[in-house]
């Protein structure tokens, strides 16, 4: 519980909390991005450089932009009436509490609660690469096929209407 951890945790929590509570949807996305950056910084603090930078590359560079575009293209940035209704807020809080309870239970009853200072896991890029290519080669390939299929699908969707009709 050092100062840097507290600071990063505060940034992450502020970002995510703001993402839920702000009225303007684009602001929400930007706040969420802040939360994701904070999370990446936490990864970096734990010595997981690869994961941290990948987090920034994927979430800040791509997902946040995608979310912002989706919002801008589908609806106006003004808050809708729906978000203010109390029943949705109530059920949302309930779900959040339930998820939090499950996670807290899992963490508390898991091995990390035992306070055993295990050996510092050495996670260099080299090892991650080796693990991906040997141990996890099947999941990697499956994900690759899935993403390729998604890419082709997007291409088909974006194709000229006239050409698709032929």
């Amino acid at each position: 519980m050092t100062i840097s951890f507290l600071l990063l945790a505060a940034i992450t929590i502020t970002g995510t909390a703001a993402a839920m509570s702000l009225k303007n949807l684009v602001h929400c996305v930007l706040a969420l991005t802040l939360g994701l950056v904070g999370l990446a910084a936490l990864y970096l603090r734990l010595g997981a450089q690869f994961v941290g930078f990948t987090q920034i590359l994927v979430y800040v560079g791509a997902v946040a932009i995608l979310a912002a575009f989706a919002i801008m293209m589908t609806r106006s940035a003004e808050p809708s009436e729906l978000s203010r209704s109390s029943s949705i807020r109530f059920s949302g809080t309930l779900i959040a509490l339930m998820v939090f309870a499950v996670l807290a239970w899992a963490i508390c009853s898991g091995t990390s609660a035992l306070q055993v200072p295990g050996p510092q896991p050495e996670a260099s890029v080299h090892q991650i690469g080796l693990a991906l290519m040997h141990l996890f080669v099947l999941p990697l390939e499956v994900i690759g096929i899935l993403l390729t299929a998604a890419l082709i699908g997007a291409g088909v969707l974006a194709m000229d209407e006239t050409r698709r009709a032929q």
Partner: peptide
């Protein structure tokens, strides 16, 4: 250790600021 990755990760933040 992950210098090139860092470069591209931070470089992608430019897009967000453009947005």
């Amino acid at each position: 250790n992950t210098g090139v990755l860092f470069f591209f990760a931070v470089g992608s933040m430019v897009e967000l600021s453009v947005f």
